[in-house]
Amino acid sequence: MTAETDMVFRFVNSTDADADTRTFRVYQVIGTAAPEELELYKFSHSMTGSSGGTTTYQRKNMNSLTFETVGQISWSSNTIASVVYFGLEEISVKDLRKVKNATSHSRRFKSGVGAGYKWKISENRTDLYCIDSQDKYIASWSNHEKILRVTPRASAMLDRLVVTCFLNVWFKRLGRW
């Protein structure tokens, strides 16, 4: 792990007391001495009249500096996500959190054609890290800091890492790892 060169993203929950915890923002932390933060993602959860609702996520277009919707998460209840949309690509949450066996401490997902990855629980039992199919580190989540670190080589799949990190943290918090 080369933490100095990793891209750093800080997750910040809404300050609105009535906001759902699925409403949050993700800031890219740039620099170390006097770090700046660039708002990069907005996650907004709305109730749709059903028991679950939809979480829409937007990413800042760095050319126009406007936020564009890049996907959504459909919830079948207040605690169970069923489908994630990455643009037009629809993926079952089960396929983004595959379990190899009942005692597994990892959740597998794919990005692109056949590229396999997995989120694993760290030794401290609160943090997560993500590795590729060659067991090479690509991302880590600090639960205490609410920080996601991503290697530059994984930047092309940033949307997928941000969303799968969020989902795994969500389900782990509910005791459904």
Rank of each mutant, 00 (worst) to 15 (best):
K146G: 06
D20C: 13
F43E: 09
L96W: 08
V12C: 06
V99Q: 06
D127R: 01
G175Y: 12
Y137H: 13
K120N: 11
G31F: 08
T23S: 15
K172Y: 13
I73G: 02
K94D: 15
V169F: 05
D95R: 14
A154E: 08
V8W: 03
R107E: 03
Y27R: 06
T126L: 13
S142E: 02
T151V: 14
R59P: 03
D132R: 08
V150K: 04
L174A: 13
A19Y: 08
N63Y: 00
D127K: 01
R108H: 14
W177Y: 04
F43K: 10
Y85C: 00
T5D: 12
T55F: 00
S14E: 11
D95E: 14
F166C: 01
F67M: 04
R160K: 10
S140T: 05
Y137C: 09
S44W: 04
K146N: 08
V83G: 00
V83W: 05
T55A: 02
D127C: 03
V12Y: 02
T126F: 13
T66R: 03
S142Q: 02
W75F: 06
T151R: 09
K94V: 14
K100T: 07
Q72I: 02
E4P: 12
H105L: 15
T23P: 09
T56Q: 05
G116P: 05
W141I: 04
T5W: 04
E39N: 14
F109G: 03
I138V: 15
A17W: 14
T151I: 07
I138W: 02
K146A: 10
F171W: 06
Y117Q: 04
S122V: 10
F171P: 03
K120Q: 14
G87A: 09
S50M: 07
S44I: 09
E4C: 11
A3E: 04
R173C: 08
T55I: 05
W75Y: 05
M1S: 08
S46N: 11
I131F: 03
T21K: 11
A139T: 02
H105I: 15
H144R: 14
M7I: 06
M1K: 10
F109P: 01
R108S: 14
